[in-house]
Design a binder for these strands. Structure first.
Lengths: 240, 240
DNA sequence: GCCGCTCGTCTAACGGTGTTAGCATATTGA
DNA sequence: TCAATATGCTAACACCGTTAGACGAGCGGC
């Protein structure tokens, strides 16, 4: 067994003996995580270059110089690898979206930028995006929404920012921030999905479409298309 | 060789001899089409019940009581079967959308119903819809848009209806019907895709979201969010 | 009527997939 | 030193899309 980039067991033998048996399990855990990490890294790189569908466990195993069966010591199935990568994807999207918590400029512009990140993410990390929001072959992801607890926090943060924009006059007063969240996400998702699934007309500008779609939806909300309407907030969310 | 529902060769032997060699090719063609039809029927039924990804040529072959290899006499590849089904799907969507060419009631309502069909189609024919608008594993479909010539006609018909709605005051005068088409299609596509890909919150009402999204987009266009903006009409379309 | 020929189907296989069983081995704790 | 555990491996199972080659039925021309 070779674990690239990690200390081998023999390197630490003397240290381990000095400290009796303390830290042995920790080293084990570290080694396990190292292999697990390399599996995920290999899978991610292969997804980006070869495309989700054409990546096999054998290719991943070959890349990390392990046997295909060895992977099952770390992940229960191929789905589980995708699952772990999806979590990384959500953290990535969350980081991108939260690093410009402006909230002091034009509130409409704030709304726009908030959801534009979603579209940008679909371009910069297409494989992650497909995994998280498009793919119908990894069904468990939708059943385990709540397993990613931080998604709730992420959503909550955006709802707060939306409420702030409403308070600053960007949208009519009696507009539900949940509804705004849903509507704008749906709008930008439509543009992102059409572009990523290659369903635009030939030569059509996806960016222009996404921009126009977002503007149109915001304008529609501004005109009060959804005032008084409350699209149920996800029950899994903290009701606040 | 058994072709269910079709006359066997021996049944027609006497007739063929009476008319010398006339009609032999026609019978051949009929038989070919009958088998081809049964392949498509089996594939469609299996897609609906088992889901696109889990249908194999072997299952299709078993269903029609042929060997897997026999299918290759009718379709060059598994992709080609999907391709043929996609064409059926577009014709289906076209029929549904064109059977209520109203154009005399409320023009806004006319717009709404026009695109609501798209959403309804995504519910009534999810496998067709996924094939036509979501799936990223059948890449040739996007490269061969123009192979479905009638899609151009379909689009044209909708653009005409949109222009009619504009003329009747549903939207500002200097609004491009192409832009309206693109925007509303994107909006309703977002809702349909989120629902079909199972990415809504648990218990969230997809219909309500789709309705609100469509209304919001129409309201936004009404408010002039896209006046003067021309999202390039697909070059493959007849420029009119 | 007989002989090539075409056509359609079959069996068998190739190279691939996700996954599992069982064996070997190295490292652990006593 | 010895049993136990962990973790890798090989080999296989049951699939997949696809192809090569054999076989046989029906056809057109002689």
């Amino acid at each position: 067994m070779r674990i690239p980039g990690a200390l081998t067991a023999t390197d630490l033998t003397s240290n381990q003996q000095k400290t009796k048996h303390l830290g042995v399990r920790e080293r084990h855990d570290r080694e396990r995580e190292s292999v697990s990490r390399s599996i995920l890294d290999a899978a991610r790189e292969l997804f980006v270059t070869e495309g989700y569908q054409h990546v096999s466990l054998r290719k991943i195993a070959e890349r990390i110089e392990y046997s295909p069966a060895a992977i099952y010591g770390y992940f229960a199935s191929k789905d589980d690898i995708f699952f772990a990568l999806a979590e990384e994807g959500f953290r990535l999207l969350f980081m991108k979206a939260s690093d410009d918590t402006d909230g002091h400029g034009d509130p409409v512009d704030d709304l726009r930028r908030m959801f534009w990140h979603y579209y940008e993410f679909s371009k910069s990390h297409p494989e992650y995006f497909a995994l998280m929001f498009l793919d119908r072959t990894v069904p468990r992801i939708s059943r385990d929404w709540e397993r990613f607890g931080f998604i709730g926090e992420m959503k909550h943060g955006m709802v707060v920012r939306i409420q702030s924009a409403i308070d600053r006059g960007a949208l009519p007063e009696n507009t539900s921030p949940f509804t705004v969240f849903r509507i704008l996400l749906t709008a930008i998702h439509g543009a992102a999905a059409l572009r990523l699934c290659d369903r635009l007309g030939q030569g059509e500008d996806g960016d222009a479409l996404a921009h126009a779609m977002l503007d149109t939806a915001i304008q529609g909300l501004k005109a009060g298309a959804a005032t008084g309407l409350v699209l149920a907030p996800c029950p899994a969310d903290p009701q606040d």
